[in-house]
Nucleic acid binder design. Structure first.
Length: 243
DNA sequence: CCGGTTGTTCAGCG
DNA sequence: GCGCTGAACAACCG
């Protein structure tokens, strides 16, 4: 479920509940949520992989982590973490991390760091990358404070596109590659979004979960790389290592 | 049954 | 008090 584009798709899918009153809420979340019954959803927002349900004076933050799912007007057999019933349907979340946010969202979230937000600021990302020259390219793309919304699939595809080895140091990247990294991270998010909506995402993967490099037809390397030791595919031949 | 996974958080340590 | 690391957590699929 989790990369940023999927959250934007969710946000669009729940628009019919915007401005609607919660008739009943339930779920096994341990988050200390206020009473939701009879409260009105003011807006749905997203920041990277965070999905935000906004009420007057507070918001509920939903993070799907690795295994989270949701259903709209449907239910899974498993008990929901949070379920909201409206007059025109219901919204169910499973296995997600749920938090209450009482602070102003504009102070909690840096909207300019969200790759799919209208306020995305590439110059800000560039500045953060410049400030962390020792960071590996694979870690930089996964860093939510720099590229909120980018996940492991997008990471792999972006690095392949720009022909950069995942273990390259950010500070060693020539300006051209550094700018390409920032640019393609955003472009790929929007392509991911379009492909996912059309149910054709997987067939567009060039490197993630793939066996052979389509550029020079040699086997991809597959290693667990970076701080999180995440699954990383790359071509030793066409993705250059900058050290 | 086991291995694998579109992710984050936090305890424990130096 | 900090940064880093590894464990913990979660549900479903093949």
């Amino acid at each position: 479920m989790p990369e940023g584009p999927s959250i934007v798709i969710l946000k669009e899918a729940v628009q019919k509940f915007k401005g609607k009153k919660v008739l009943e809420s339930s779920g096994n979340t341990k988050a200390p949520l206020p009473e939701l019954q009879s409260k009105t959803v003011i807006d749905f927002k997203s920041w990277g992989k965070h999905f935000l349900i906004c009420f007057k004076g507070f918001a509920i933050r939903i993070h799907f982590l690795l295994f989270g799912t949701y259903r709209i007007d449907e239910r899974k057999p498993a008990p929901p973490r949070l379920s909201l019933r409206f007059a025109n349907g219901e919204l169910n979340f499973y296995t997600s991390s749920i938090q209450l946010i009482t602070e102003d969202l504009d102070t909690v979230y840096d909207w300019t760091a969200d790759t799919m937000n209208e306020n995305w600021n590439p110059a800000g990302a560039r500045k953060k990358l410049k400030a962390n020259p020792d960071m590996l390219a694979c870690d930089a793309l996964m860093d939510q404070s720099i590229f909120a919304g980018v996940g492991n699939i997008i990471k792999n595809e972006v690095l392949f596109r720009i022909k950069v080895h995942p273990e390259s140091r950010v500070g060693a990247l020539p300006a051209k590659q550094l700018n390409a990294l920032i640019r393609e991270a955003v472009i790929y998010c929007f392509e991911f979004y379009e492909w996912k909506k059309a149910y054709v995402l997987k067939k567009h993967w060039l490197v993630y979960n793939q066996k052979t490099c389509p550029r020079d037809m040699i086997p991809f390397r597959r290693k667990n790389l970076g701080r999180g030791q995440r699954k990383t595919f790359y071509c030793e031949s066409c993705q250059q290592l900058y050290k």
